Amino acid sequence: MIAMQYSFTLPADYDMGIIDRRIAEKGHLLDNYPHLRFKAYLSARRTDATRSRDNLYAPFYLWDDVEGLNNFLGGDGFAGVSGAFGRPQVKSWFVWQAFVSPDVSQAAFATREIAPVDASIPLGERRKQESGRVLRDGEDNGILASVAGFEPATWTVVRFRLWAAEQPEQADEATRIYRVGHMSLPK
């Protein structure tokens, strides 16, 4: 599996209703998309519970394989997003472990943390730690999905969670909180 995210930072006075309408009108287009485990349509506002410093549109994807990712990035949907907002930097991570609840469509909030990989800990040990965290997350009724992945160019891990309700985690440079506008899922 491969996790992927891109993000658009929007002006402070941007009408985020535009993003909400875009998600409402286009979100269903990736429902049942081949090789897609889920797409979480994410946004954050400077003025709401996400406690974001910026207005953001930042969808997060969990792909079964690279074929789905390549088909999406080379297709009309991504061309449309790029045409509307500019071509973004696309972050991707090799997934070490993922948990997706059957109730994931009920996700209301998401958190995403990017953390450096400490060189003093063997990578295999770090993978076990992160995978164990995901498995423990699967036992928490409030967590509807959890993903841990690794990016070797920057030696970072991603910890992504989808929540049924708002979480008290503090948004900072490493952790972002988002609202979920739509979940695209397989049937």
Rank of each mutant, 00 (worst) to 15 (best):
Y57E: 11
S7R: 15
L42F: 05
L42P: 01
P122N: 15
E151N: 13
S101M: 04
D76R: 15
R22V: 00
A98N: 02
Y57K: 06
Q167D: 09
P11E: 14
L162N: 11
A58G: 10
D103G: 05
G142H: 06
R161S: 12
L29D: 05
Y33T: 04
A107W: 07
R46D: 06
E166D: 13
Y41P: 00
A40K: 03
R127F: 04
N32K: 08
P59N: 14
H28G: 14
S7A: 10
Q167K: 05
R179Q: 14
I143N: 10
A108I: 00
Q129K: 15
N141E: 12
I23D: 03
A115H: 02
M16A: 09
D31A: 03
D31H: 03
A115C: 03
T156G: 05
A148Y: 01
V158E: 12
D137S: 09
D64C: 03
H182A: 10
S131N: 01
N141T: 07
W155Y: 08
R176L: 06
L73D: 06
E151T: 04
G27Y: 05
A119T: 10
A153E: 14
E173W: 03
E130R: 15
R161L: 12
K91Y: 04
V158N: 09
A165R: 14
L29H: 11
D15F: 04
N71W: 03
S131G: 10
A145F: 01
A107F: 09
A40T: 02
M183A: 05
S131T: 05
I121C: 06
N71A: 14
L185A: 08
G75F: 02
N70C: 07
P186I: 01
F38R: 08
F78H: 12
P59A: 14
A119H: 11
G75T: 02
G80A: 13
L36H: 06
A148S: 15
E130C: 08
Y14F: 15
I19K: 03
A44N: 07
A164I: 00
N32H: 08
A79D: 06
E169N: 08
G138H: 10
P34C: 11
S184D: 09
P186R: 13
N71S: 11
D15R: 15
L69N: 08
L56H: 12
P34W: 08
N55L: 07
Y33A: 04
A44R: 08
V180M: 05
E25L: 13
A164W: 00
D65Y: 03
D65L: 02
G138W: 11
G80L: 02
F99Q: 08
R45V: 00
D137L: 03
V104Q: 06
W155Q: 14
P34L: 05
R87Q: 12
G142I: 00
L10S: 09
G27K: 06
V158H: 04
R179F: 01
G77E: 05
R112N: 13
Q167S: 10
G27M: 04
E25P: 02
N70I: 02
I19R: 06
L185M: 11
G124N: 11
K26W: 07
R51Q: 14
S52I: 12
P152I: 03
G132S: 12
G80I: 00
R136C: 01
